[in-house]
Design a protein around this nucleic acid. Structure first.
Ligand SMILES: [Zn+2]
Ligand SMILES: [Zn+2]
Ligand SMILES: [Zn+2]
Ligand SMILES: [Zn+2]
Lengths: 134, 134
DNA sequence: ATAATTAATGTTATATTATTACACTGTTAT
DNA sequence: ATAACAGTGTAATAATATAACATTAATTAT
């Protein structure tokens, strides 16, 4: 399978680096504060980089948190089929890789027979750590 | 099955009414403008009502749109297990009622054996109307 | 019945998230 | 060389959401 080579611009690379280094999802303005030493000064520069990175599947937006996380799947094709687990307590977020799940949802037809070309699924609960501590 | 009776306050009822009458999801500030004649003056009054209505399952938040829609399921239990279809073109949103899907997701275990107590799923594609017009 | 507790309200101010508008630069295609 | 496109920089502003504080109403416990 031929993988499309994506060249990242300076700002896109800076933003991607910081998201990839982070332990959890980052918010746009937190990214901004962290990259100001690198010359990125304005929100828009961050948002533009985020937009591109999402488009090419390098990162995803966690919608319920307005935050951004690096893609955990080497397979880019799955970027229009995303699933996450989110801990209600410590806010830890993990991208779920599960072929059965993604197949099930990609092939899902609603009652009217309609199929979809993209989905985003967010699961909530307590992560292992937080479950133990209770 | 005993259904817990929920009494809505004045503001909650006003906000619910307008969301239920709407054809599609409403944004918080659009709700605000629409209820100012009824005496609700500030964003916080709307957000507080929304918070409560979400909690009791009368409405849901469409996370990818920051908008709010009335629940389409008489069964309140499903409010922690939500699925929507969203048209990329006309932005029409429909709550998906599908027992198989909700069972599948409610019972889903990730690779580490973890189960979740809540999920939200958003499907994207073209609705029937928009598919025809293409 | 009254005190304590909880839920809701009203209001102002402010924080957070995201986009519009405009001028400019560099790269690729014909 | 010109057009088309993707990216940049900057300022201003729009849109979404919450904090803080004072007050009132409704519910529950004694
Ligand atoms: Zn991914
Ligand atoms: Zn946790
Ligand atoms: Zn519902
Ligand atoms: Zn449509």
């Amino acid at each position: 399978m031929a993988v499309k080579q994506e060249y990242l611009s300076k700002n896109q690379q800076i933003v991607l680096n910081i998201i990839e280094k982070a332990k959890g999802p980052l918010k746009a303005y937190s990214i901004l504060y962290n990259v100001q030493k690198k010359g990125i000064k304005a929100p828009l520069q961050v948002y533009r980089a985020l937009e591109k990175l999402i488009k090419i599947g390098k990162i995803h937006k966690i919608e319920s948190k307005n935050a951004f996380i690096a893609c955990n799947n080497s397979d880019c094709e799955i970027s229009n089929a995303t699933a996450f687990s989110i801990c209600d307590n410590c806010e830890k977020v993990k991208e779920i890789k599960n072929l059965k799940l993604s197949k099930y949802l990609t092939n899902f037809e609603d009652n009217s027979g309609m199929k979809y070309k993209k989905y985003n699924l967010e699961f909530f609960g307590l992560c292992k750590n937080c479950k133990l501590k209770q």
